[in-house]
Amino acid sequence: MSDGSEIFLLNLRVNGRAHRVPVSADDTLLDVLRRDLRFFSCRETCGLGLCGSCTVVVDGRAVSACLAPAFTQDGCEVRTAEGLEDTDDLHPVQQAFVDEQAFQCSFCTPGFLMSTVAMLEEDGPADVESALTGHLCRCGSYRQIMAAVGKVAGDGRDGTGE
């Protein structure tokens, strides 16, 4: 039950570690991740949930952190791109993005990575186009991104356009 106060003590786990952050009704999950906890892979481009730059995985699902009111995320398990790799090895999705060089400026990259990770963990190699709709890459690296995602999803797509 709530106490109807103007400050809420938000408990959440990020990449396996517990955090407690006081938030107001104006704060989003993006504010908490960037401003308070310094997970800079979560980035704002549109602030409207349509570009995908701030995509994180919450309780197993891809969400736009910019659209998630912080106090509604109490008790959630959040994953960001910083938490994907092991000590030495990149996550297979990260490795595929490196192998296919699926980025230019890479500002959008963590968002694409997290949507891909969520898609693979939820459904296995499912409909890649559908999972990546709503992700903007202004550099236009889409074909390489599709090649990378296709590679980990195992559909053998070729993004080179040669």
Partner: peptide, 12 residues
């Protein structure tokens, strides 16, 4: 419903 917005929006 599959054509609404994007997966992230529909997830929440």
């Amino acid at each position: 419903l599959r054509l609404v917005a994007n997966v992230r929006v529909r997830n929440v």
